[in-house]
């Protein structure tokens, strides 16, 4: 569904991604791990075209969507690929309900009633119906992140990208967010998740990709990566996240 071909990303002289080749398959959950600064976020941001690769190309459903394409192609790609951020990024001037229904209304041209009905059903699935008229600032981090997830879902994306969705949360709120993500994975959603939550990777991950210094050093099933990684670098890194 998403394919990266020889994707290189440079910031000035700093080459952050070095010829990445990767495919995200429908219905699959890919977990990306790797040291800080290795290029994990940059990798995700190429996939949904928040940034354009310096060279190489991004394909979605077989079509090239990166580089010199019409701005409507870029926008459509954004619509198909949802993204959940470390810092939630709910819109503070909108209520919870408005946060969820705004894009379905203005982008998908759903009626307010239709968008609201779906938003309420999503809210009830995560148990936050009574927060629909609250503003984000009055909610906990865990609540905000769960709402950010269903805000993306309300756009019916084909893929959801997550960039360290639990690392800005207090420890006691991590589980409630992971639970929503696990349910989503089980429902068949295609997901690419940057996270160091081993439990999540083991339970629902199909593949784990270890990114090191701008390259995908190794990729395999969670069991293989966590217990029998090929590379020393990978084993080092995994022992660090397991014992810190």
């Amino acid at each position: 569904m998403i394919e990266l071909r020889n994707v290189v990303k440079k910031y000035g002289n700093n080459t952050v991604l070095k010829k990445i080749n990767m495919k995200v398959h429908d219905g699959e959950v890919d977990v990306i791990i790797g040291p800080s600064g290795s290029g994990k976020s940059t990798l995700l941001r190429q996939m949904n075209l928040l940034e354009q690769p310096t060279s190489g190309e991004v394909l979605v459903d077989g079509d090239v969507v990166s580089g010199k394409v019409k701005s409507e192609v870029t926008r459509k790609t954004h619509e198909k690929i949802g993204m959940v951020f470390q810092k939630f990024n709910l819109f503070p001037h909108y209520t919870v309900l408005e946060n969820i229904i705004h894009a379905p209304q203005v982008v998908r041209h759903e009626s307010k009633a239709q968008a609201t009905e779906e938003a309420l059903s999503l809210l009830s699935q995560i148990g936050l119906t009574e927060k629909k008229d609250s503003y984000p600032a009055s909610l906990s981090g865990g609540q905000q992140q769960r709402i950010a997830i269903i805000r993306s879902l309300a756009m019916h994306p084909n893929v959801l990208l997550f960039d360290e969705p639990t690392s800005a949360l207090d420890p006691e709120m991590v589980e409630e967010v992971l639970k929503v993500m696990k349910n989503l994975a089980k429902s068949g959603m295609t997901m690419v998740v940057v996270t160091h939550e081993m439990g999540f990777a083991k339970q629902v991950g199909d593949r784990v990709l270890f990114v090191d210094d701008g390259q995908i050093l190794e990729e395999d099933t969670p069991e293989k990566i966590f217990e029998h990684a090929q590379h020393e670098r990978t084993r080092d890194f995994i022992s660090k996240i397991l014992y810190t």
């Binding site: 928040l50 926008r75 954004h78 993204m83 990024n89 819109f91 705004h102 894009a103 982008v107 805000r151």
Partner: peptide, 12 residues
């Protein structure tokens, strides 16, 4: 993050 979130939702 505000504009990135909005862009990621497919807003023009």
């Amino acid at each position: 993050g505000q504009s990135e979130a909005a862009i990621s939702l497919g807003m023009s």
